[in-house]
């Protein structure tokens, strides 16, 4: 996205929880109207990026169910699709 850092992390590296918390703060700060104008514009840009990041995380909600296959030592060797009967 950009080189904007939230808590020392690029937005792309934020977990959903962190991104949503940051987005809430951005909106609250802007709504309070206390932020200087120049900062408001930066905040707005940040907000749109955070929102996009959150939406991407929410969209990534594909259920994928796998079953671990074991080797002869009983350790995980791989996976196979898992169907619940």
């Amino acid at each position: 996205m950009s080189d904007v850092q939230i808590g020392g992390k690029a937005i792309a590296d934020l977990s959903f929880e962190e991104a949503m918390g940051a987005l809430e703060q951005v909106v609250a700060k802007l709504e309070s109207g206390n932020a200087p104008l120049e900062q408001s514009i930066d905040l707005y840009t940040q907000g749109t990026q955070l929102k996009a990041h959150c939406e991407a995380k929410l969209k990534d909600a594909q259920a994928k169910i796998e079953k671990i296959t074991l080797d002869e030592n009983g350790t995980a060797a791989g996976t196979q699709p898992f169907d619940v009967e």
């Binding site: 949503m20 987005l23 909106v27 709504e31 707005y44 907000g47």
Partner: peptide
């Protein structure tokens, strides 16, 4: 719950885009 989060993010997004106009207009 994904739906709730979807709603929260959408709400935050709406408020944010409303602010794009209002943060200039208010000033």
């Amino acid at each position: 719950v994904r739906e709730e989060l979807n709603y929260t993010v959408a709400d935050l997004g709406r408020r944010l885009s409303g602010l794009k106009v209002s943060m200039i207009a208010d000033r």
